[in-house]
Simulated scan of single mutants.
Amino acid sequence: MMGGNKTVVKSLEILKLFYEHDRLTLQEMVEISNIPKTSVYRQVKSLEEMGLLTRDIDGKYRLGLIFIKLGQLVADRLDIRQVALPFMHKLRDEMGEAVNLIVREGNEAIYIEKVDTKKPVRLYTRVGRRSPLYAGACSRILLAFMPPEEAEQYIAQTELKAIASGTITDKERLRQVIVESQKNGYSVSYSELEDHSAAVAAPIYNHKGEVVAGLSMAGLEAHYAPDKLPPLIKKIKQTAREISLQLGWRDE
């Protein structure tokens, strides 16, 4: 049994070489892994027979197509809500603010999960609530990380209606805020969906490097004064990153 375990470990060590290398020769695998050549040869032949490695015409090896199928299965079966929820609870408990998870649906953002603050005064949000992509930090972070042409088309074709006193209704201003969000990796909003409310949001990435959701903390505007923002921004970006890693995103 122990011998079988050692074989599996060595096979995994070989496969892990391809995290950072697209194609490798046998000799390159030996040099990088420091595993004896005979052992590498046996492992590679077994992995090739199972379809886990494929040898090109020039003799170099790469990961087999089976990984595409397996990777897609894993991605398809990941429920972003289940993945995110423990991190959302932890963030709420550490920072004391409500935490929301939002995804895009057409030209709107929809709240798919929330963790309420334990404070007596709360904002009104609910799972299933919708908001336009231009309004509010969490919605706008999705707009900011859409393909540029698609985002510009949305802005050009959308009437920016005021929802609350701070809603951005000027298209040039919206474009500026989007550029800032792309540069900084987060978005902040004040009284955009509800007066006297504020939010800070960061994007969540999937295994393909695509933004698939937005994570936000939201609360009373007084809790998001400029001098109080740095720790909020740090934590929302950190938590969004942790969720992204669980979804298979590689931090490069």
Rank of each mutant, 00 (worst) to 15 (best):
A84T: 04
K118Q: 15
L47A: 01
K16Q: 11
S46D: 08
L70G: 00
A151N: 00
L65M: 08
R250L: 11
A225S: 15
S197E: 13
Q238A: 15
I163H: 07
V212R: 04
N100L: 13
G3K: 14
I66R: 12
D251Y: 11
L232K: 12
N34L: 10
I168C: 11
N107T: 12
V179E: 15
L78C: 02
H89F: 05
E108A: 07
P226N: 06
S131F: 15
T239C: 06
K235D: 06
K69L: 13
T25P: 11
L160C: 05
I57S: 12
P36L: 00
L247V: 10
Q238P: 10
G3Q: 12
L17V: 06
I57W: 08
F87W: 05
I233G: 14
L174F: 02
Y224M: 15
T169F: 00
K16E: 11
I233T: 15
V30I: 08
A222M: 13
L70I: 09
T7M: 11
M88N: 01
K45M: 14
E97N: 05
A240F: 13
V127L: 12
L78Q: 10
D170C: 04
D76W: 10
S197I: 10
S187D: 08
P203H: 04
F145Q: 01
V211S: 00
R140V: 06
T158H: 01
L232V: 09
R250Q: 13
C138F: 05
E210C: 03
M2Q: 14
Y154A: 08
A201F: 02
M50T: 04
L160F: 04
Q246P: 03
S139C: 02
S131W: 14
A164P: 08
N5F: 15
I35V: 00
M29Q: 01
V179I: 11
E252D: 07
Y19I: 08
G128T: 08
A198S: 13
R62A: 15
L220A: 10
E242W: 03
D58F: 01
L220W: 06
S39H: 06
Q182F: 04
T7P: 00
L52F: 07
Y205E: 03
G128A: 03
N34K: 14
T25W: 09
Y41W: 08
V179G: 06
E150Q: 14
H21K: 07
Y224G: 14
L12E: 10
Q157G: 12
L101T: 07
G51W: 01
A213G: 11
A98M: 14
G128S: 02
M88G: 00
A202H: 01
P203S: 03
R129H: 01
S165P: 01
E172Y: 07
T158F: 01
L220G: 09
T7H: 07
D76C: 09
S39M: 09
L24F: 02
Q27D: 15
A98G: 13
A202D: 02
F67I: 03
I110D: 02
R23K: 11
G64S: 07
E210R: 07
L229T: 02
H207D: 14
K234C: 08
V8S: 04
Q82L: 13
G106Q: 04
E105R: 12
A240N: 13
R129P: 00
C138H: 08
K208E: 09
